[in-house]
Amino acid sequence: MTVLAEKDALELLGRGTIEIEGRLVDASNTTLRAEITLDGLTRRCVYKPVQGERPLWDFPDGTLAGREVSAFLVSQATGWDLVPPTILRDGPLGPGALQLWIDEPDTAEALIGFVPAYDIPSGWLAVANARDEDGDAYALAHKDDPRLARLAVFDSVINNADRKGGHVLYPATGSIHAVDHGVSFHVENKLRTVLWGWTGKSLIPEATDVLQQLTERLDGELGEALEEHLTVTEVQHVRLRVRRLLRSKRFPKPPQDWPAIPWPPV
């Protein structure tokens, strides 16, 4: 299937006709897979209606859908193409987040997972120890891969509280995409991720320029766009997190007062 340019994908999502196929039952909130068609072009998408969101005590403001869209806007500003095209629009069940569906080939090789503790693959970074039902030792680990390193920087910026391995997709293009950002952008440090392999290490070289560009854009159109979905204080804290990363030039360390790894991790 031909890969859509971002502009074309956003046009399709914004103006296409939505036909719901079914519900993704593993999701904690109402998450629907749908087909969307415009001028003879049809693609799949994910539709998350606001009315299907369960209230979260620690995210009382705005909507999860708005946070999904905000994650795309930040991703778009980085130029790293991490989050699939995502918009907020009316659908069959009212307003919600609409995101382009990402197909993964059967041969896609995951870069995050559990591996034998005594046989961690070369070029992988261990994150946490674990044991299976038989008591055998495993390690939660991920590959030391620049695509994941970009994602770790991105998650630090948006304060992602739920970066599971299963939220990272591997399309046939060789890139990676990340989904499920409804619990991001909190003003408190709630970073929870499986990508702790670079803890305390120097940021990847390209991150400095990207973060500097983000700083400028957050003071302009990006900041204004985020304020349509987040509180003013939440947007201010995005700026603060970017500045902290620029000052330290290092990947953050796990929080001490918040579980550092989501459950389940993958």
Rank of each mutant, 00 (worst) to 15 (best):
V153D: 07
G40C: 00
W80M: 02
L148G: 00
I20P: 05
G16L: 02
H142N: 10
L246E: 09
R54I: 11
G94H: 11
V50K: 08
L151D: 01
A260N: 07
G40E: 08
N159T: 10
N29D: 12
L82I: 07
D132E: 09
T233E: 12
N159E: 00
T2S: 13
R33I: 15
A207W: 08
T78H: 12
A5Y: 11
Q51I: 14
S122I: 13
R243L: 14
A34N: 09
K253Q: 13
A149H: 15
G52E: 02
A130L: 08
L111E: 11
L41N: 08
V83G: 03
S70L: 00
G91P: 01
R239I: 12
T215D: 15
I20Q: 08
F59G: 00
D155V: 08
G96Q: 03
L64N: 08
R239Q: 15
L125I: 10
I176V: 10
D90R: 10
P254I: 09
D39F: 13
E109P: 00
I87Q: 03
P262W: 00
L100Y: 04
L140G: 02
P254R: 03
L214H: 02
V266K: 05
Q99T: 15
L211Y: 04
A207M: 06
K253F: 14
W80N: 00
W198E: 12
P262T: 00
R147G: 07
L218P: 01
L111V: 05
A225P: 07
T231C: 06
W196M: 02
C45L: 15
P95W: 06
G62E: 03
F251S: 05
H237K: 15
L98C: 04
E6V: 15
E53S: 05
E68L: 05
R54Y: 14
I20K: 01
L240M: 11
L93V: 07
G16S: 01
P146N: 00
T2M: 13
E68M: 05
D180C: 01
A9E: 03
R163L: 06
D61K: 14
A108I: 10
V50A: 05
G135L: 04
A97H: 13
G79E: 09
D132V: 01
E11V: 13
N129Q: 14
R217L: 12
F185S: 00
G94P: 09
L98F: 09
V179F: 01
R44E: 10
P262H: 01
N159L: 07
W198C: 10
P259Y: 09
V127N: 06
D145M: 06
T86W: 11
P255A: 12
R150S: 09
W124F: 03
A139T: 12
V74I: 14
F154Y: 11
E188S: 14
L211P: 01
P171E: 07
L169M: 09
V183T: 08
N159G: 03
P49I: 04
D81I: 11
T86F: 10
E228H: 14
A77T: 06
A34V: 13
L195W: 06
D219Q: 15
F154P: 05
L24Y: 09
T208V: 15
Q236H: 14
G174Q: 10
F185Q: 03
R150Y: 03
L73Y: 08
Q51N: 14
Y118H: 13
G62S: 10
C45H: 03
A110V: 13
F72G: 09
T78N: 05
R150W: 08
A108E: 08
P60V: 12
